[in-house]
Design a protein around this nucleic acid. Structure first.
Length: 472
DNA sequence: ATGTCC
């Protein structure tokens, strides 16, 4: 496996074996995974063998090893050319993503209210492995409303305002959700978790805008220097996990029927137009709506805490997923084609003027929300015109160490003390969970977004630093 | 990521 440097932030894997297209990795030389030690690059090449794949199997600067597809991967298949959809190209946490809200509060006002705010969030945000969620849903009929309506349903039920929908990807819900493709077990796992953070790298953070790179874009997004924000990173919990499990199982079974042979069984897939492909996409869309409703309720919980404890408002900046497949129209070889774009640990980044943007963002592009690792900055980026990789960019710092490795390297209590010493308030669910999320286990998020910008995938708008973290 | 194995 050889990586050819095309430009300072772009490396190519020439097609070999069953690869139908090249692999392209956007990264600086120092972020580039070690081909011999890391299976991520091999996974980029494996994805290039999928039926119907167009242009290239892309990897973002935060790429690392994942289930079948690498995390930080983008792959698009041509729907009309028997292109496939693969659950492994989305990941287990379907529609995992980020929601950013901006407070009517300045950093200078924070010290006197910070601990009250953090204690309020500590009790208001259900998280960790323990049961508990903002919403208690006990029948399938109401859960179906969540699966069909996403954030829109939550807002209709009084959990938010209309503007939350204009500032959410897909206006708060995708229209092609098919709850009939969601198994009873997925429903059982999901119904007690609507409005819960989960664990692992999921968090709710209070952050401050530390630096603005682009004044016009920041203003359009509703961000100014020194502003206090709330960032929510969460997904579709047990619901998405079960949907992925269920549909991978089906696809493994039917692949031979479609004459599909893949180099790794974790790349299980089916043609987009096949019954199995459509079933997965319908269930995946349901999980996407579930995750949006989840983040809507968590954002709303934070909003109530801000109103009650400091009497300040929280306005939605944006909500965007980084684990999703979407049917999108893109120009390939001079023709507009319907593509199934898989983004796994990769964020859609619409350029200025894109028709799917709300009117007030048309001039600047879509806000792209990049959560850092614990105690490190997060970034707000925006899409750029003529960008490669089907308008996609990175999704976060990207893991460099396994959870087990991380937990061995540091004690949760020491980490909490270090964060508190840096003036970052910590409300964790478990000490083991904190240790697994030590920033040493992650790549440098600033280097990742620098490479993403250097590779022409996006532009930096603002840097946010954490002042308080609520961990799952 | 995940009722860290149905």
């Amino acid at each position: 496996m050889e990586l050819v440097e095309e430009s300072p932030y772009r490396f190519r894997i020439d097609p070999h074996g069953d690869m139908r297209v090249p692999g392209v990795v956007f990264a600086s030389r120092s972020l580039l995974p070690d081909v011999t030690a890391d299976k991520a690059i091999e996974q980029v090449a494996n994805v290039a063998t999928l039926p119907g794949i167009v242009e290239a199997s892309y990897a973002m600067p935060d790429v690392h090893w994942g289930y079948g597809f690498p995390i930080g991967g983008v792959a698009a298949t041509d729907v009309a050319a028997d292109g496939v959809v693969s659950p492994g190209g989305v990941g287990f946490d379907i529609s995992c993503g980020v929601r950013l809200l901006a407070a009517d509060l300045d950093r200078a006002e924070l010290p006197r209210v910070r601990e009250r705010l953090m204690d309020g969030l500590d009790t208001a945000v259900p998280r960790g492995m323990a049961r508990g969620a903002v919403w208690k849903i006990d029948d399938r009929a109401q859960l179906n409303e969540v699966l069909l309506g996403g954030s829109r349903y939550a807002v209709e039920q009084g959990h938010g305002v209309e503007r939350d929908l204009t500032r959410c990807e897909d206006h708060g819900a995708v229209s092609d959700a098919d709850p009939d493709q969601v198994s009873d077990r997925a429903v059982q796992r999901g119904q007690g978790q609507v409005g819960s953070l989960g664990s692992g790298n999921h968090f709710l953070e209070v952050q401050a805008v530390d630096h603005v790179y682009d004044d016009d874009a920041a203003e359009a997004f509703g961000l100014r220097p020194g502003q206090i924000c709330v960032m929510v990173h969460s997904g579709s919990r047990g619901m998405g996990h079960q949907i992925c499990t269920d549909h991978v199982r089906v696809m493994e079974r039917v692949m031979p029927r479609y004459g599909i042979d893949v180099p790794d069984r974790q790349l299980a897939c089916a043609p987009v137009f096949s019954p199995e492909g459509r079933a997965y996409l319908g269930a995946m869309a349901a999980a996407a709506n579930y995750a949006r409703a989840n983040r809507q309720l968590l954002g709303e919980a934070a909003r109530r805490v801000f109103e009650r404890t400091v009497g300040r408002r929280l306005d939605l900046v944006y909500d965007v997923s980084h684990n999703l497949a979407k049917i999108e129209s893109h120009r390939v070889d001079g023709a507009d084609r319907q593509l199934c774009v898989h983004r796994k640990g990769a964020t859609r980044a619409l350029p200025p003027g894109h028709p799917d943007l709300p009117a007030d963002l048309a001039g600047v592009g879509q806000p792209v929300l990049i959560p850092g690792s614990m105690g490190t900055p997060s970034y707000v980026l925006t899409g750029v015109a003529g960008a490669p990789a089907f308008a996609s960019t990175c999704h976060g710092a990207g893991r460099a160490q396994s959870r087990t490795q991380a937990a061995k390297s540091v004690r949760g209590k020491d980490l909490r003390d270090q964060l508190e010493a840096q003036n970052i308030s910590v409300r964790g669910a478990s000490m083991r969970g904190l240790a697994e999320e030590t920033p040493q286990a992650y790549k440098d998020v600033s280097a990742v977004v620098g490479s993403a910008e250097g590779g022409g995938l996006c532009r930096r708008v603002a840097r946010l630093v954490p002042v308080g973290v609520v961990k799952g």
